[in-house]
Every structure is written in C-alpha cells, then in structure tokens.
Amino acid sequence: MSLLEIRNVSKIYGELKALDNVSIKVEQGEWVAIMGPSGSGKSTMMNIIGCMDKPSKGEVLLDGVDISKESSKKLTEIRRDKIGLIFQQFHMVNYLTAVENVMVSQYYHSMPDEEEALEALGRVGLRDRARHLPSQLSGGEQQRVCVARALINHPELILADEPTGNLDEANENIVLDLFAQLHKEGTTLIVVTHDPEVAEAAQRTIVLEHGRVAREIINENFGK
C-alpha cells in the first residue's frame, strides 16, 4: 500500500480549478519533488497533503485513511501525528530558543523531552546553538532547526514547502544533504519546489501545470 495516494482530486475556487482531476501515488520511503510554476496548483496540493485543506472532489489516502472527508479537528490530529512540516520562511516562534522551538512540536504531539530535542538539533549540527533565539541564528541554521523540529516526532511523511527558497547555495546543500540522510533512514519526503536543482535531488519529480500533472520525471542519477 502506498503511503499517500491521491485519487482524481480536484480543488475548485469559484471559477478557478486549482487542481483538476489529479492522481498521484507516493510510496513509503520515497523522496518525491513536486514542481511547477506559480499558479500550477503546487500550494493547493501542499495544503491538501498537509491536512490544511480539503479537496472539492476525489480522495486522499494517507496511510490508508481518507483524509478528504475528515473534520478539521481530526485533520489537525493526523497532521500532528503523521506529518513533519518544513517551510520556506522557516517559521520559528521568535521568542523561544532553538531547542524550545523543537520542543513546541513535542508539546503538541506528546511530551516535551529536552534531551531528545537536543539530540535532534545534534543531528542537524546545531547542538551548540540550542540556546539561541531565532534572531541569533542565520537563515540556514533556522531552517536546520526546522528540519530538526519536523523530524522530532518521527513522522510518516516530511512535507517541505520550498525548503531552500530563502537559503544561499551552501545552506541549500546542507539541507539537501540532511534530506538525503533522512531518505536513507527510510523517511518519506515530499518536497514542493520550483527550483530544478532541488527537484533533481529527489528520486522522482512530479511536474504540475494548470492544475494537472504535466509529467513525471524519474531521476536516473539519484544516489550517484
């Protein structure tokens, strides 16, 4: 069974069809990039996969559960338990330290555990920056904190929205290396991006255009 299966999903805002009969499958442990220009339906796709929006038509099966019919309360629970989110703008709570930001995720999920949070920061190479506020961290460091936060609850799926959009090349590579490492450990990754380089790092790229799947590209150089 696929971890994520999107079946004939449409999302319609009035006259506009943001998604038009899209079907996608993502297998457990797969690293998939979703690419497309502005207005291609990337954001809508991201919202639906991230349990922050519901499709107008079609089914979305996440880990065997159809999330297209759930209440927003239930969606919040599913998002909390199964998905780790990474954003373009990093989005840290600006008055909490790096480790506290990681712990916020634990707090909503189960129990805050500072040791575990510090370990997660260690994985992204920021253990020594744990007590710093976001304003004291560089953009790359902030995004690495966000990666640590996304993986702290061991989610089934890590959903990253333009994760390198605000980063320089060096930091972009650090983040992509982290993704590669997570992939090796068996984490399923979906990365939404318009950057071909980021897309190329994935195993497979799904290209959206005008709300439809235009094509799928298998990265033959993956892992080389």
Partner: peptide, 10 residues
C-alpha cells in the same frame, strides 16, 4: 498559524 500547523488544537 505555525502552532496550528505543528498540530496545536483550537
């Protein structure tokens, strides 16, 4: 928004 995205209930 972030807190809700991270799974905070209402």
């Amino acid at each position: 928004g972030l807190r809700k995205a991270l799974g905070a209930s209402d």
